[in-house]
Design a protein around this nucleic acid. Structure first.
Lengths: 224, 224
DNA sequence: CGCCGTTTTTACGCCTTCTTAACGCGTCCC
DNA sequence: GGGACGCGTTAAGAAGGCGTAAAAACGGCG
């Protein structure tokens, strides 16, 4: 019952891997680009990632960095480049293994087994901590003074987006489109309601927030 | 300070690796053959093993097996053979990585870093206990107050998925796709029925669950 | 062919969450 | 100085999610 996230922009390769891995008992989550991959990694319980470096939308190293920001899931990189420099870069970015194309299916399967074997049960905890509260991104859990704080789906989506961009300004439009969808890009209204709720749950003095900051006219910012 | 056990029968390679790795901050334990390697692994606190497969006294796979009998230390295999079959054999015997000669020193260093990085977190637990019940994942058994509790296949699948992710929020979509299949991702209905059944069997007060928790709109969570 | 355990439907009442509205405060610009 | 605008806060109705029980459909096995 191992779930593999496969990231490759070539549909026929994606499809071939999907069929073959499924035939070998893996659950496969396919993803054609980097953005979808990062999203899928959050919505599914991924055990291993198979990542092709040549993606259309973003650099493969960015995908590795995006994953490594919050999870220790094994990453097996596929690449057509044999250069030693590329391998070093990928491995140092956080990849666990590097396979050069063309490769045999049996080799990939063996490396998958090796990766998932040593991963075992994923218990590493990627935590984002502040003086006031702690956000566990992998487990979708928020604690404050040791006590768990319950978040509604929308509250969590907003908080997660901010926490995944610590210190960075996130525009209202971006939050609205990512949480509510592109059609809601103008409903800045919702944001005020939810920021107030988040502050009431997480800030010591909700009227004078320290971690969930408003940048008037610009957006919001999470400060650690 | 990472200690690397290097096993290679060619003195000049052994020596070259020893010098280079030492220059990069590693403590090196050299070993010219398999027997000496197995001995050294027991007398030194080894963090990573670099193993050449072509040894004079014993098969490289035997060395891997000899190490895997008692330790999970990462093993990086060096080999001149490019054949896919050899890779599969070594990886399945318990190796973590496979590098074909000739290789660049920087690649080996990167793979060393990757191996020792992930070495920190692993170990599996087949028995999950709570104050109320015990789940034996390996034997698919649930006991409560010493008495075995009978589970239907579907009940077990749901329980297993939750218990394998202790403390982690599991979305209902994920449970549905993994237990019933992707076509049932929207049938959140089933889940309510089965969560109720699991609680009736496992919780002291099914109406106020302590271990099988609902996160409204988000999913379910198993709390130990 | 009929029984029995399991899964899937169905129905209903309760509760959480989302959405919307209203109002007060502060700030910026004219 | 005044108006417009953006923001924070609260409250309440609407909509949908959840728990529960029980009946119907299914499937394996004798």
């Amino acid at each position: 019952m191992t779930t593999v996230l496969i990231v490759d922009d070539e549909p026929q390769i994606l499809r071939a891997l999907q069929i073959n891995l499924h035939a070998h008992g893996y659950t496969v989550v396919p993803s054609p680009n980097g953005k979808a991959a990062l999203l899928a990694a959050q919505t599914h319980a991924i055990d291993v990632v198979v990542l092709d470096l040549g993606l259309p939308d973003m650099d493969g190293l960015e995908v590795i960095a995006g994953l490594r920001g919050w999870t220790d899931v094994p990453i097996i990189v596929l690449s057509a480049r044999h250069g030693s420099h590329d391998k070093v870069e990928a491995l140092d970015a956080g990849a666990d293994d590097y396979v050069t194309k063309p490769f045999g299916l049996d080799e990939l399967l063996a490396r998958l087994r090796a990766a998932s074997r040593r991963a075992g049960t994923n218990t590493a905890e990627p935590l984002v901590e502040t003086a006031e509260f702690t956000v566990d991104l992998a487990n979708k859990r928020v604690t404050r003074a040791g006590e768990p704080v319950r978040m509604t789906p929308t509250e969590w989506s907003v908080l997660e987006l901010l926490v995944r961009n610590p210190g960075r300004l996130v525009s209202q439009q971006q939050i609205l489109t990512e949480v509510w969808g592109p059609a809601y890009a103008k409903e800045a209204h919702y944001l005020r309601v939810y920021m107030a709720q988040l502050r009431r749950k997480l800030e010591r003095d909700p009227a004078n927030p320290v971690h969930l900051l408003t940048e008037a006219g610009m957006g919001y910012r999470f400060a650690q």
